[in-house]
Amino acid sequence: MAELRRNARQNHLTLAKQVISIALERGLQPGEHLPEQAFSEACGVSRTPMRAAFKILEENEILSWREEEGYFLETGPQDGLTEAAQLLEEMEDSLATRILSDRAARRISDVQSVSALVRRYGRSRSTVLNALKILARDGIVTQLPGRSWAFQPILDTPRSIEESLQFRLILEPQAITAPGFQLDAQKAGLLRAQMQAHLQTRQGRIGSASFMRIDTEFHGFIAECSGNRFARGALLAHHRLRRATQKDLSIPDFRLRQSLEEHLDILDSLEQLQFDVAADLMTLHLRRSRIRRPEAANRGIVPLTRGPLTRGPSA
């Protein structure tokens, strides 16, 4: 029970959604009282986390609070309670996305207190905590002793992007050749259609953001099909991190198209059960995907006689 309580405390959002499920199951109507004790027992948690969950629902105008009476349902099943729950989740996700995108853009530092985030985003403590927990699920932040949270490395520098690529070169081909790879044919078909649609756009019109989306979807799909559960888990988490933090890719149109063609070739091989070929194509694709930037500059910065630069000093 103690473990259950601890878990529940760690995710007030889940609890809030559980409250909505119970309200829906019991057919509660607007104006009906939600007794703390009864809901605490129904959810298997103490009254403190239940109050936190009620507070989230109050902030989102799903419940109201009356002095010395407690919480009452404001939104009933006919008023869109299900949608409210959905919105609640999206809102939490959206704050998590904002926090992450601000970290990736270096607007906030890599160690944050909940209070600082509450001040920055003008949201309640519980809302911020829930957003942090969403990020923690993907290993993007970890809680430090005390009240601070630390961001883990994200794909925001040339060095981290290079490290990501090296990591993927080790794992992605292995994810394909590991015994038990199962291609989801229906999803493969959908991805193929999306990539072909991109290839049919006019030159220069494939946007970097939409390419990134389809790229992480494709690589995430390969991971999902892997027969090795550890490779699958590690790669899925990594692609989520890529999708969330590696947004500003600026790849020439030629390479974007070449990359999509390479995805299609990999799918072809997988559909023909040629896993070794698919793994080799994946290696080739990843090597070609190494982002190239001019690494030298003339006008005296480093004469050719002294050889090329590998990276700037920061990398």
């Binding site: 270096r106 925001d156 520098t157």
Partner: peptide, 17 residues
């Protein structure tokens, strides 16, 4: 290549390499 040199980027600024 100097993204690491910047912290506390203002809300109306976006940096890239």
């Amino acid at each position: 290549g100097y993204l690491d040199a910047y912290t506390h980027v203002p809300d109306n600024v976006y940096l890239g390499d």
